[in-house]
Amino acid sequence: MKELVIVSGKGGTGKTSMAASLASLAAPVVLADCDVDAADLHLVVEPRINSRNDFLCGSKARIKPGHCTACGKCEELCRFDAIFYDGPGNGRVARTFRVDSLACEGCGVCADYCVEGAIEFKPVVAGQWFVSTTKYGPMVHARLAAAAENSGKLVTQLRQTAQQMVQSQGLELVICDGSPGIGCPVIASLTGASLALIIVEPTMAALHDFERIARLTVRLGIPALLAVNKADLNKELAERLETAAVAVGIEPAGRVPYDPEVTRAQIAGRSVVEASAGPAAEAVRALWQRVNGRLQGCAESQAGGLVQMGVKQ
């Protein structure tokens, strides 16, 4: 089983549009939308949801106002500025302490050291994840609650489920739509994958960001390909990006020209290779040939690799 992860460093370079197009060219495949913060792939692949599951993300503290004696120990111990002295009074004290659940990181130290036992520490539901069917094959995706934490752990959950589906359905490939950046959800998406496809636009900002995501793939030992989107916007920078890629062992796999058909396809809720025969669609088809060729020589996806970075409950 192979796993292709689409990443970018910088956001908004066209990862999701690319994921939808590659899925339609590679079908049947398992799709995983690992951009759990801002999941958009469902808007173009129209999943039919078969099962919904709660995502439990560890616990958060809550102070029971009736039991708080306002001693202040919790505020003293909290390293995350999550405890405020503005809770309601309770007959014994005029004010109590209160936990800001959005600032609480779930370490549990306040609950462990409250002598009154006034602090509850319970698991919270931080979102939902779904197993669905699309016309390209099964899909796993999620909706993280607003302002929630542990997106890396949710990504790990999605990838593990996607890998099980590949096996149970006799398929060969998982395509993961990753998130921007180089932090926790991106590391959780890449660790142990067969191949990364890095999508960039030819801009100075992207050149800077590319260098960082490229170093991350090298560090994690994941082979990578580069695709330059909207390449005609600045041909000189497209070349500089490709040169920078070659210098770190990342093979340029193609350029996609700017084409208004891409946005039109998104509005129509379709992938560009299905909605158009224009220059972008043609370039994506050629790109898929190279990505697919390269995938054949890549290692099987290492599900076990996830455990290293996956945040333990």
Partner: peptide, 14 residues
């Protein structure tokens, strides 16, 4: 701010 709606964005907007 960083993109997204989870911890990094929250930390910035707080």
């Amino acid at each position: 701010a960083p993109p997204g709606t989870s911890c990094p964005a929250v930390e910035t907007v707080r």
